[in-house]
């Protein structure tokens, strides 16, 4: 098992390298100089030149790439932000906890809501409840999250004064953004769980369990659910990744100072070091999450476990 984990961790390195190359190339090839974006329209050529020289932007593309890689490998130095001159990893680690909190809370709630309702929907297939839940899920899956976020703000912050419309100070400020993210994710999870459950319920071993004298309830919780969860777990893992991305939109709507907003601003400024480091960070995080998902999968499904062990 450890060998498998180590192998996966080592495989992450080429993935990250690939991400690094792609992002670096895109940033370098798209038009727009960081100097001009950061110093503003009124800066004169001298200031621009000074900026470029300071940050090594006057070198060629291969030279810049080489220097960047060299710094990382020799000193683990990911550089400082062009705009604020702060070490990039300090900035990322400072903003990350909020985004992480946002993504984790919404995954948690979306899982609870989505899976529970998905099971209910599947068990009561063809009933009015099932129909209602399925339609509701479809509606929420189609609603753009920023619109939902704004509606929630209008309703709960403006009119009812129940929750703050911005910031990340108290636990109350997390309620609306988490709700927004969770609802969208829950809708997808509901449908996935429902179809996984429906498929599982049709399996032969369910019939065997009933023939043993197990009650329909037993059958659902002890046999069907655990089997149905397998595809749902993978879905959750990917959902986490999407949440991290969705957090960007939500962070803008709710003015939450998380990693999402940091990246968007950095990209707009073409703040190379910050963009590179942030995206590498997220990529590594995502790889880690997928690894955990795979391990959980192996934990649940003994067929996979024996494959890994061998």
């Amino acid at each position: 098992m450890y060998k498998y984990v180590i192998k996966r961790v080592l495989l992450t390195i080429p993935v990250l390298l690939g991400v690094l190359l792609i992002v670096f190339t895109i940033m370098s090839l798209t038009p727009g100089e960081p100097a001009r974006l950061i110093l503003g329209a009124s800066a004169d050529q001298a200031a621009i030149d000074a900026f470029n020289q300071l940050h090594g932007l006057d070198a060629t593309f291969p030279e810049r790439l080489w220097n960047y890689l060299k710094d990382i490998v020799t000193d683990l130095d990911f550089g400082r932000s062009y705009r604020s001159d702060k070490p990039v990893f300090d900035m990322i680690l400072g903003r990350f906890p909020i985004t992480f909190m946002l993504a984790t809370l919404s995954i948690f709630f979306s899982a609870v809501i989505g899976i529970v309702l998905g099971v209910v929907s599947a068990v009561k297939q063809y009933s009015k409840l099932d129909a209602t839940l399925t339609v509701t899920a479809m509606i929420f899956a189609s609603i753009p999250s920023f619109w939902l976020g704004m509606m929630l703000i209008l309703g709960f912050s403006l009119n009812l004064h129940m929750f703050p419309s911005h910031g990340a100070d108290s636990w109350q400020s997390y309620v609306l953004p988490v709700l927004t993210l969770a609802v969208s994710a829950a809708a997808g999870l509901l449908r996935m769980t429902r179809s996984a459950m429906l498929e599982t319920i049709r399996m032969e071993y369910i019939r065997t369990a009933r023939a043993k004298g197990a009650s329909p309830r037993d059958v659902i919780y002890k046999h069907a659910l655990k089997n149905a969860l397998l595809p749902v777990v993978t879905s959750l893992g990917i959902s986490f990744g999407t949440s991290l991305g969705g957090a960007v939109v939500i962070e803008t709507v709710f003015s939450i100072p998380g990693l999402g907003m940091l990246i968007v601003n950095a990209i707009r400024d073409k703040d190379f070091p910050l963009v590179m480091a942030s995206i590498l960070f997220l990529a590594a995080l995502f790889c880690l999450v997928m690894l955990i998902v795979d391990l959980i999968y192996a934990f649940i499904d003994p067929r996979i476990k024996s494959k890994y062990l061998n």
Partner: peptide, 18 residues
């Protein structure tokens, strides 16, 4: 001082008394 990412959130926060 609270920093906002966009003017609509700012306006809403002002209107809601925050």
């Amino acid at each position: 001082i609270r920093m906002f990412a966009d003017t609509s959130s700012l306006a809403i926060a002002m209107e809601s008394g925050e």
